[in-house]
Amino acid sequence: MSFVIRVVFAIAAGVLMSIAAVLLLYAPYSVLRDAMASGGKIHHSLLGAVGYLIVAIALFDVAKYFFEEEVPAGRERRTAADARRGLTKFVSTIIIALFLEALVLVFETARENVAEVKYAALLVFSGCLTLVCLGLFQRLSAATEKEVGPEPNDRPEGEDMAMDAKEPPSTGPGRLA
């Protein structure tokens, strides 16, 4: 079953990269097409192209995450720190895409309909909230890793028995006596 899951992630990553490549090609094409049709007035299509490029880069980054984290064999026994780093990279990509898209939306709405800027502000707020949640996740998971210590599979061979024999059970906060 693990092989099937890795194949599905590889196919999904390949499809995402293909869509991103099409967007990377379509963005300049749309600007050139609009420039020829409108006689050089392309400010609106440039903002649209920036939006396409932002989405393309985010898709490439998500596909890269799949290829690095989900596709390789033997990655099933990851540590909590590995999972935290992978999730942080993934969510960071989403946050960057949110902020860039919000910036484009601010410029578009400021030129067309200023009353609609509230939607861009909500997008900025959601990006900020996601960033705060990522920071909270980082802090809590790092604190948990420090409190719990390395996973048993992370200790060098032979150290399990030596550490268990030397260390008496702790009765500190959060531990049962």
Score class of each variant (00 low, 15 high):
Asp61Tyr: 00
Phe99Trp: 06
Phe107Lys: 00
Met161Ser: 13
His43Leu: 14
Phe67Val: 03
Gly174Asp: 05
Ala73Val: 08
Pro150Lys: 06
Ala58Val: 03
Glu70Tyr: 04
Glu69Met: 08
Leu98Val: 06
Leu123Trp: 01
Ile96Phe: 11
Gly158Phe: 03
Lys166Glu: 15
Gly172Arg: 05
Ala162Arg: 14
Pro152Lys: 15
Ser141Asn: 10
Ala120Lys: 03
Leu32Pro: 01
Arg77Asn: 15
Val50Thr: 13
Arg175Asp: 12
Glu116Asn: 14
Ser170Gly: 11
Gly48His: 05
Arg175Lys: 08
Met163Lys: 14
Arg155Ile: 09
Ala37Glu: 12
Leu131His: 09
Ala97Ser: 14
Phe90Lys: 04
Ala143Asn: 14
Ala73Phe: 11
Thr171Phe: 14
Leu59His: 00
Glu69His: 12
Leu134Gln: 07
Ala102Gly: 13
Ile96Ser: 01
Arg78His: 14
Asn153Lys: 11
Leu122Met: 10
Ala121Lys: 02
Leu103Phe: 15
Ser141Leu: 14
Gln138Lys: 07
Glu157Ser: 09
Tyr119Ile: 10
Asp164Met: 11
Ala58Ile: 01
Arg77Leu: 10
Val62Thr: 03
Val117Ile: 10
Met17His: 04
Ala142Thr: 03
Ser126Thr: 09
Gly86Pro: 04
Glu69Leu: 05
Pro28Ile: 07
Gly149Ser: 06
Leu123Lys: 13
Ile94Trp: 03
Lys118Tyr: 07
Thr109Asp: 06
Ala73Asn: 05
Gln138Leu: 15
His44Trp: 11
Ile11Pro: 02
Lys166Phe: 13
Ile42Gly: 02
Pro152Gly: 04
Ser30Val: 10
Leu23Cys: 12
Gly51Asp: 05
Arg85Ala: 12
Leu123Glu: 07
Leu100Val: 00
Ala73Pro: 05
Leu24Trp: 02
Leu53Pro: 02
Arg78Pro: 12
Ala21Ile: 06
Ala115Phe: 09
Ile5Arg: 09
Gly172Trp: 11
Gly135Leu: 14
Leu59Cys: 09
Val7Phe: 09
Phe90Cys: 04
Arg6Ser: 09
Leu100Ser: 06
Gly127Arg: 01
Arg75Cys: 06
Ile19Thr: 07
Leu24Arg: 01
Gly127Phe: 02
Phe9Glu: 02
Arg155Ser: 03
Phe99Leu: 05
Asn153Ile: 13
Leu46Phe: 06
Cys133His: 07
Leu47Met: 10
Glu101Val: 04
Lys166Ile: 15
Pro168Trp: 07
Tyr65Lys: 01
Ile19Cys: 04
Phe67Pro: 01
Gly149Glu: 03
Thr144Tyr: 12
Gly51Ala: 14
